[in-house]
Design a protein around this nucleic acid. Sequence first.
DNA 1: CCCTGATTCGC
DNA 2: GCGAATCAGG
Length: 177
Amino acid sequence: MEAGLSWTDERVDLLRRLWEDGQSASKIAAQLGGVTRNAVIGKVHRLGLAGRVKAVPAPVNGRRKPEREAEAEASPIEVMEEAPEPIAITAHRPAPDFPPPAAPTADSVPLAVSERVTIMDLRESMCRWPMGDPTTPEFRFCGARSITGLPYCTHHAQIAYQPAAERKRDRRVAGFR
DNA sequence: CCCTGATTCGC
DNA sequence: GCGAATCAGG
């Protein structure tokens, strides 16, 4: 899909802002698009704005070297208690206009069209991305697992939330359906 | 089960 | 530098 997206200044800026606003890595990743939460966390650490945090060098943490050696010292740093209230996020681009009258054209996107539910089966934690013509009985919602806190799944969140910078010219409404 | 960030290490 | 895999924990 989107090619050449990487840690451009714009993306790093957005990352910084969202991280400092207390957004979680997964939400940030969804809004940036094209990256996973792991990528976000990795970047955050590389940028040196890792977090505020837990106790400390708890002897046990993520994968450590096979073994061998164990030093490192750290003093309990002040912890910033209370995360700020998540603020409004970037540009929310409501679904582009509805697709041509049920354009029966072939799908060029190999998207797993598995879920898809009616409003009756739509429940919290399900992607609310509209699919089809809402005036017809065939209307459905994506229904895939939505990012908690956001109304869409990772795929549709990328379409809904587009970094202002990249949305400039090359904005092609990818995948609708 | 859902989620969170932290760390290591192969690329 | 990057981020998947993995870990510890809520």
